[in-house]
């Protein structure tokens, strides 16, 4: 396989890059207070933050699937004027600093916001600084990941199967539910996991839009930040370790279940 010596000019930076990525994780494991770990894991603040994180990330992923898969289908299958613009708009939250996203959400859905004022006066619904607000913030940041990966899956799928379904009497809707969805299911699952992981790690938009209230809006990343600020390094390390374990588990699941599937 190898063709001669590997050039040092490539090998050295490659190894440095690897060390740069791995070293902080090693640091985290090295600093973990293993002896007190079990009792720290069961502290109510930790359990509460973890529960809130898992619930909001899962809800956000669910809503993202509901909105994102149809959006991806529209982009992949329907030609309409301004499609390129729509695709560009979808990628904006992807490159936008999440804090800016949080402020934008406040201006749109805050009590005095574009839509928020109307929501408040009509339904008495106010999203900022609520658990629902956390879900909204996570959705805003994670949805583009889902749309882009599902659109990629849809574009990669052979549309002639959909034509075959049409000749057998399937309407566009039944074709979507009975043919398109099963065909791109692995792509949707991968997009969903990516979306969930992004929602789980969300920090900037959440703290700006939903605040940092333990039990209501304090998700794991926010708890890490606050614990660290309060000088409890061990606590921050424990919380970080949990997020690390969850992330690595997802990565492993992705690799085995979907990424390597034919």
């Amino acid at each position: 396989m190898t063709r001669g010596r590997i050039p040092g000019a490539l090998l050295v930076p490659a190894i440095c890059g690897l060390i740069f990525l791995v070293l902080p994780l090693v640091g985290l494991l090295w600093r973990t207070p293993w002896s007190t770990l079990p009792q720290r894991l069961t502290e109510p603040e930790v359990v509460e933050a973890l529960r809130l994180s898992l619930v909001t990330a899962s809800l956000a992923t669910g809503f993202c699937l509901l909105l994102g898969v149809p959006l991806a289908w529209l982009l992949a299958r329907v030609t309409f004027p301004g499609r390129r613009l729509v695709r560009a708009l979808i990628t904006v939250p992807l490159v936008l600093p999440p804090v800016v996203g949080g402020i934008a959400l406040l201006l749109a859905l805050g009590r005095r916001g574009l839509l928020g004022g109307w929501l408040d006066s009509t339904f008495g619904v106010s999203l900022p600084f609520t658990t629902a607000g956390v879900v909204v913030a996570e959705m805003f940041v994670a949805l583009p990941f889902l749309v882009i990966s599902v659109e990629g899956a849809l574009r990669g799928a052979d549309t002639r199967y959909e034509e075959a379904a049409a000749t057998l009497g399937a309407t566009r809707w039944t074709t979507f539910t009975h043919v398109t969805l099963p065909l791109v299911a692995p792509g949707i699952a991968a997009g969903g996991v990516l979306c969930w992981a992004r929602a789980l790690g969300e920090f900037g938009a959440t703290i700006t839009f939903a605040g940092n209230y333990p039990g209501i809006t304090q998700t794991m990343p926010l708890a890490v930040y606050q614990t660290m600020e309060s000088g409890d390094l061990d606590g921050a390390v424990v919380l970080s370790l949990i997020l690390l374990v969850v992330s690595v588990t997802i990565l492993a699941a992705l690799r085995d279940r979907w990424l390597t599937a034919p």
Partner: peptide
């Protein structure tokens, strides 16, 4: 008439049997 409303059956070149 859209394809799904035509009384037409098609055998495609590479069959396009639904793989799932």
């Amino acid at each position: 008439t859209p394809p799904e409303q035509r009384p037409v059956g098609v055998v495609f070149q590479d069959y396009l049997l639904f793989p799932h």
